[in-house]
């Protein structure tokens, strides 16, 4: 088991193997991601029952929660890739950083937008300094910082390595941000409304949520693979194996 994992790690660490692997996997992943997202969202929009407190506005959850979850997972994944890139100077990890950041930022923006729109019917306003919305706003800022840094540095490798360091620092920071923002929210209670619903979700709502979550995560994976391929194609455009591959 362990040796298989190690072999995988080394194989996927080589751009050549990764490129072949993604050529085989991508078509299936595209289909699966689109089908799961579509099924999850349509199920949530049209077939799941209404929430007895919030009415139909709660249906935003089927896009909001998956986007927020995937944005957070993506940031952590970027930090892990950054650590690997810095410590082992692994090429694929550098490529991954560049591949994860754009879609991660988009998902953070989606989570914020949907959260704000959901806020209007629920809290009566588009923006509340709620702990979760605030954390997501800071997460978006962190993503934008990584993207801005990569854009500012002309050299690809140097930009990726700088982004690696920034995202490692950022991941350490995210943990503290989460804790500090919760503390901050409790400090100023009264000025904010808390929408922490601890009630358990009935299965008719939970299942479509899980399906759309799987769909969004897979779309993220698709986006990462496609962007990583673009990056490999750009970096290795002069190598023979790639010219034979395309």
């Amino acid at each position: 088991m362990w040796s298989t994992l190690v072999r995988w790690y080394h194989q996927l660490g080589s751009p050549r193997y990764f490129y072949r692997f993604s050529t085989v996997v991508l078509p299936w992943l595209w289909v699966l991601a689109i089908v799961l997202t579509a099924v999850g969202l349509v199920w949530g929009l049209a077939f799941a029952p209404e929430d007895y407190q919030q009415g139909n506005s709660y249906r935003i959850i089927f896009i909001h929660v998956p986007a927020a979850g995937a944005a957070l997972t993506g940031y952590v994944a970027m930090g892990v890739a950054g650590l690997v890139a810095l410590v082992w100077r692994m090429k694929m990890a550098e490529i991954m950083i560049r591949a994860i950041a754009p879609f991660g930022a988009v998902l953070a923006a989606v989570a914020l937008l949907t959260g704000a729109i959901w806020g209007k019917p629920t809290w009566g306003t588009y923006w509340v300094w709620d702990a979760r919305l605030t954390s997501m706003l800071i997460m978006l800022f962190l993503y934008l910082g990584v993207v801005a840094l990569m854009k500012a540095i002309e050299d690809d490798r140097q930009g990726a390595r700088a982004a690696s360091l920034l995202s490692v620092v950022g991941v350490i920071n995210v943990v503290v941000v989460k804790y500090s923002v919760e503390w901050w929210n409790s400090l100023h209670q009264g000025s904010t409304i808390n929408l922490t619903r601890e009630t358990t979700m009935p299965a008719e709502m939970l299942v479509p949520l899980l399906v759309s979550m799987a769909g969004i995560y897979l779309l993220f994976a698709v986006s990462v693979l496609v962007r990583a391929r673009a990056e490999i194609l750009r970096r290795e455009r002069k190598s023979r194996w790639l010219q034979e591959e395309v």
Binding site: I138, L144, G145, W183
Partner: peptide
């Protein structure tokens, strides 16, 4: 990270300000 870049000032702020959140809050 930004030493030697042109227009490092605003970029530096973009990178650093979100990292300042916990210290500011506490």
């Amino acid at each position: 990270l930004t030493v030697g870049l042109r227009n490092a000032g605003v970029l530096l702020a973009l990178l650093v300000l979100p990292l300042y959140v916990p210290v500011l809050v506490f």
